[in-house]
Structure formats: C-alpha cells, structure tokens
Nucleic acid binder design. Structure first.
Lengths: 148, 148
DNA sequence: TTATAAAAAGATACCATTGTCCTTTTATAA
DNA sequence: TTATAAAAGGACAATGGTATCTTTTTATAA
C-alpha cells in the first residue's frame, strides 16, 4: 500500500520523536539502524522531510534531526502527501480514470469506503500518537523493543 | 493499491464475460481497446491468466478468450493472487516484518481492519458479480457505456 | 492443403522506485 | 582557528513493474 519511502519516513519520524523525549537528537546512521532501513536511502528520505519542514535538522558536530518546539503533531496524511502525493487517497480501485459517483466502476462504493477508512486513519494518527503507543508499551517500532 | 497488471486483468476478465453473454469470444486487440490498456501488455497479462487457468483461450482463426462452462465465478482474490501474490493482503501497514497481534506496530489494529475490509471485498466480488452490475446499468467498465 | 488469424513466447526497452557513493556545505568542539 | 562530525546534494546503479516488438505455434476457414 504505502511505498518504502513513506514507511521509512514515518518510522524515522517516530524514532526521532522517541529520542527527542530523551533530549537526544539522532543522526542518519542511528535512525537507519533503528528503523532497519538502508543508511544512504534513509538520508534521502530525511532530506525530503526536512526540505518540506516536516522535521528540522542541524548540520555539523552534534547535529541530527529533531522537532522544533517539540512539535510532532503532524499527521500521517501530512507525511504521505510529501512522500507520495495524494493520488493514493483518490485513485479508483478499478483503475478507471473517469470513476465517480455518477459514473461508478463496479467496485466504486465498497472500495471508496475502504480508501476513506485509510484516509481517516492517516488524518487521525500523528507522529506523536504513534510514539505514545510505543512509550506506553502498546506497540513496538521494530522487532526489538528499544526504549533505551 | 492494485498494480496496473491487476487492474488490467480484472477489467479484461469482466469484458470477456460481458462478451461471452453475447456468445462472442474477444481477442487481445478488442479487449485492450475496450479496457483502455496497451495491446502488447494486455496480451502478457492475459497470458498469465490463461497459464493459471483463470480464463481459457483458443488460438488460431476465430480464437480469443472465454470462460469454460460459462464459469466466471472466480473472485477478485483469485485474480489478485496470481497477478501480485498475497503479500498485499498480509503486509504490515507500517512496514514491519515482525508485526503481529502480540508484537503490533502502532498502526496494527486500525490498519488491519482496513486491509481485512479490502480482503472481504476481494473474496466477495467475482468477475460475474462485477459484470452483473454493468449489465444492470449500476456501473460502467470505462468512460463509454458500451453494451453492444 | 494452404493461407490466414489468432494466442504464446521470447527478447528487449523504458521508467519509477529504491538504493549507493562521493563531494560539498555547515556547525561545533577542541 | 582548525579538525572533525554531521547533513545536504549530485551523480549514478540496481531492481521491478510497465510496455513493445518480433517470432513461433496453433487452429480454422477457404
């Protein structure tokens, strides 16, 4: 469903937030290792995010990634918009270019419900809310539960 | 969500069924035109389907594609299985390899519901049922409503 | 039986996503 | 002020999905 780019982006942001709570500012190498993504590619993904101000970065010694004013209240929708555009939230499940309520494909109603459900999740969940689930032990970021 | 291959496959099969009702046996060229997909690629997709016996074909003059014993009762799930494997119905929405009920990612519950909803559609809808919606005028196969 | 029409098959090309590497810029610590 | 550590940026490589073209096989109609 989501591209690797989106997955890495979301996982990376959650990890950054988890670190920020501990007053740390992780760098690419640490982030990539934690989210189990390739280092150089993670750097590229983070570049997209910082360019679009979804997260902040600092160069140089002691640099790394962080949220300004502790603001991690960006929704998954915000992130996904930047990593794959919003076609994913609009496209017909049957592949028709002209699919609409007036001119529906045979899957229109049922698929729309599913896609809208996904949109609701994406708009409701934020990097903060996901992080919170991990902090409270209700979820994990990867196979190791790492809160150190 | 679905790949082009899957979309073309489903649309092609629905068109074949619509033609079969009129005792016709469409060929690749006609199918491709109707579903608005590239001809050569449509041929490849149909090859996959016939190789896996989701639809039958006849070579030579007067040949084309058809359903044996008028059996178009295959589910979208069956089709999708062959066009993109079943990972699409299992994969973690967060991208974790180890995601499970016991070891859930922060999106686990909500995303699972969505994905399961999609699975239900895929298992409930068949090429026949989609065709029926078109025949009864409740849906269209492409921008033109072609039932000639 | 032969010409023809059609699917099957194989080889190849294209393009977007994913991934790597190397250089440049920038900030900090020493 | 200089060495160093880090992100940013640019160029490139690998992969997989999408797409095209040509040849081969097969069945039918004439």
């Amino acid at each position: 469903m989501l591209s690797k780019t989106s997955e890495y982006a979301i996982r990376a942001l959650v990890f950054i937030q988890l670190q920020q709570i501990q007053n740390k500012r992780p760098g690419v190498i640490e982030i990539a290792k934690e989210i189990e993504a390739p280092e150089a590619f993670t750097a590229k993904v983070l570049q997209i995010l910082t360019r679009n101000h979804l997260v902040q970065s600092m160069k140089g010694r002691g640099g790394g990634f962080f949220f300004k004013d502790n603001k991690c209240e960006l929704t998954l929708f915000d992130v996904i918009q930047h990593t794959e555009g919003d076609l994913i939230f609009k496209k017909c499940g049957f592949g028709l270019t002209q699919c609409s309520d007036e001119n529906p494909c045979p899957l229109h109603d049922k698929y729309d419900a599913i896609r809208d459900g996904f949109l609701q999740i994406a708009k409701a969940e934020t990097i903060c809310s996901l992080s919170q689930k991990i902090i409270s032990g209700k979820a994990v970021l990867n196979r190791l539960v790492t809160m150190n």
